[in-house]
Write a protein that binds this DNA or RNA. Structure first.
Lengths: 182, 182
DNA sequence: CGCCAGCGTTCAGTATTTTCAACAGCCTGA
DNA sequence: TCAGGCTGTTGAAAATACTGAACGCTGGCG
């Protein structure tokens, strides 16, 4: 049960710095640092505050399927994926939540009216995906695309982008992002 | 998220005093007392030590389905059970984990086609049970329930009650009695 | 190149938690 | 009734966690 590495893994998956997370959580960056280095064992209330900045519950935090020093697992069954859902969008991460992974490979489900947000995402790296089910609207830069089942995309993440499902059926998207922040 | 009440509920379900749990966990009884009174917010390592004396993992602890001020529920479906597994023995807690419940259930083999008798039982305390195999008829007060495999029950024993198996398959029941010493 | 803004780490001081020891209350048995 | 053993609680002292302000490092930009 390595609380420190666990926290760091999740923080990096969310693309947050120690200071950003600290500010959102209402603690100092020192606290985050020391927790991640396992130089302290945080109190329940502290850890709860920290996780509120992600956001994530204590149950979710301790339930994350994380392991050190295990022979690298190659094949993951459907029910072995790590749940990283945020908001209406269901996100399942392929592979363990590890601190320094290069790639975030996600199985995402967008229910009708689900939206990654009006503000356009823009971060380093590249990302690609393929729509498996339903239809989905993808905006990259000033271009707006409608993805049908089987369509796919690939672009550099510094371009502002947004996913939205204005249709009446849920859309299932398999996506990959490098590095592992989104 | 009431850590104190949650801990006290589980401790009492296990029939442990603060001092007994403290000794098993390698902490002092004061620690248990203060955690249960919510006068402190324990560190992860402390709580983990405390739970090791039960024993119980952090995931299990935070996953406990606990609620205050719930209207009395009589029948619980298979997926509503609280997992209290410890060691090799798998234990699922029937009913909400409430602070001062008087009950801990026993693993009891209920012979096929058995009947508790036509006269309705009514005694002090509380009781609960789960049907593992087959189907069973449960009468509580004037209500008659048909329990399917996986369904469970919880009620106060002063209500007259009766078990009956009018079906052609054997029914296996895991039942519990009051008080909470097991 | 210098400068700035961000990153994570470290240290001294403060705040919180844990221990140790004592306390009162409640039974039980002598 | 009193002693002994149990219960949970509470106080001061010791141990631990958290803050606030530094530090060195990195990468981008003028």
């Amino acid at each position: 049960m390595d609380v420190g590495v666990r926290l760091q893994s999740i923080r990096k998956l969310k693309g947050l710095s120690q200071r950003e997370l600290a500010k959102r959580a209402g603690v100092t960056n020192s606290t985050i640092s020391m927790i991640e280095k396992n130089s302290v064992s945080p109190s329940i209330s502290s850890l709860k505050k920290v996780l509120s900045g992600i956001p994530m519950t204590l149950v979710e935090f301790f339930s994350i399927d994380y392991e050190q020093d295990t022979p690298p697992q190659v094949v993951y069954r459907a029910d072995e994926l790590t749940d990283l859902s945020s908001g209406a969008v269901t996100m399942k991460l392929v592979g363990k939540a590890q601190p320094n992974r290069a790639l975030a490979f996600l199985d995402e489900t967008y229910p009708p009216d689900a939206d990654t947000g009006e503000e356009m995402y823009a971060h380093e790296g590249e990302e690609a995906g393929i729509l498996v089910e339903g239809r989905l609207e993808l905006t990259v830069g000033s271009e707006v695309y409608i993805l049908e089942a089987g369509d796919s995309y690939y672009f550099e993440s510094h371009q502002p982008h947004r996913f939205r499902n204005p249709f009446d059926k849920p859309a299932r998207l398999i996506s990959a992002t490098t590095p592992a922040n989104f």
